[in-house]
Design a protein around this nucleic acid. Structure first.
Length: 313
DNA sequence: AAGCGCAACAACCGCCGGCCA
DNA sequence: TTGGCCGGCGGTTGTTGCGCT
């Protein structure tokens, strides 16, 4: 555990030369990567397999999108971060052509700062003033570099990052019934009794054109003056399935769940904001990776969620 | 021109989980 | 069941380029 790879050999480290890039690119183009540990030897590189893998994934892969992140992409990252936290690889799956490393760097170097300037805590996606008041809250270790760590099962809604109780709704968030049924039983009371209000996904940029967007224009939050009261909102719809399903611990991660929309944001005009389900993403013909790969990722993610909340669903 | 600070990007490190003998 | 190997992930550090003084 933790042993540096290829520690016995004197392998080259640091920046990659154009010659090394060419060797690796040529080799993988012709042969595929196969077992990464054998790639450097076969490609004639004095690098460890891990380094080759990273170079390929983050730089040489032909399906990478080059150039700056668009405002739409940045908004999407913020929205996804609110849901997924620091799971960069999960976020990257939803941004075709972008790598987890790239997104992580953008977040740490740029987006974090922009959110703070706009008075939003990048860890919790709450207004900074609220976060200050929440310092005693055990739910988030915001003072450490372990961002967005859910420490208690009771923080299920913190995990979803839209947590907020409020009775005045203009926008509602309704969990898909199938997802609601996955919520561990100890949270059911929140589903059925309280209106768990969801803060909106924060956007850094106003919609600039009519390109495909995850969030409808009506739901754009004026970033310069965040109006949580009017934009937050929603409740986790309790459904009969969630109440009447007594055997959560026996529940399996069936295709039905995997194909279900993760959740849907609704505003009063019935426009919907879909946080796309894996199925939606898979249907994107531009998506460079296989459906099974993406599905696996989603499956894994959901399993992690259950582990996080100490339940086997 | 030199020095400095900062932002962006690239790469490494340590850990974890899955797989397999 | 156990231990080693491997790939993947997220945090962190190092490097580079640019603007400012």
């Amino acid at each position: 555990m933790g042993r540096p790879c290829c520690y016995k050999q004197k392998l080259r480290k640091g920046l990659w030369s154009p010659e090394e890039d060419e060797k690796l690119l040529n080799y993988i183009t012709k042969n595929g990567h196969g077992c990464w540990s054998s790639v450097p030897k076969l490609a004639g590189l004095n690098r460890c397999g891990k380094s080759c893998r990273l170079r390929w994934i983050n730089y040489l892969r032909p399906d990478l999108k080059r150039g700056a992140f668009s405002p739409e992409e940045q908004n999407l990252i913020v929205q996804l971060h609110a849901v997924l936290g620091n799971r960069w690889s999960q976020i990257a799956v939803r941004l075709p052509g972008r790598t987890d490393n790239e997104i992580k760097n953008l977040w740490n170097s740029c987006i974090k700062k922009k959110l703070r300037v706009k008075g939003i805590d990048p860890n919790t996606h709450k207004p900074l003033s609220e976060v200050d008041n929440d310092h005693k809250s055990p739910s988030l270790s915001s003072e450490t570099n372990q961002e967005f760590i859910v420490e208690q099962p009771s923080d299920f809604f913190d995990y979803l990052a839209f947590q907020k109780l409020n009775s005045s709704l203009e926008h509602s968030v309704s969990l898909d019934s199938s997802l609601c049924s996955m919520i561990p039983s100890q949270f059911k009371i929140d589903c059925s009794v309280s209106k768990a209000l969801f803060e909106p996904s924060v956007t850094l940029f106003p919609p600039s054109d009519n390109t495909s967007r995850t969030v409808s224009e009506e739901d754009y939050v004026e970033a310069t003056e965040p109006n949580w009261e009017s934009n937050c909102g929603g409740m986790i719809n309790n459904t009969s399935s969630s109440l009447e399903n007594p055997g959560l611990e026996d529940m399996k991660w069936s295709d039905e769940y995997l194909n279900a929309s993760f959740f849907t944001l609704q505003n009063e005009s019935s426009n919907t904001i879909n946080v796309k389900s894996e199925t939606d993403f898979n249907s994107n013909t531009d998506f460079p990776w296989s459906q099974s790969q993406a599905s696996d990722v989603f499956h894994k993610d959901l399993q992690r969620m259950t582990v996080s909340f100490g339940q086997s669903l």
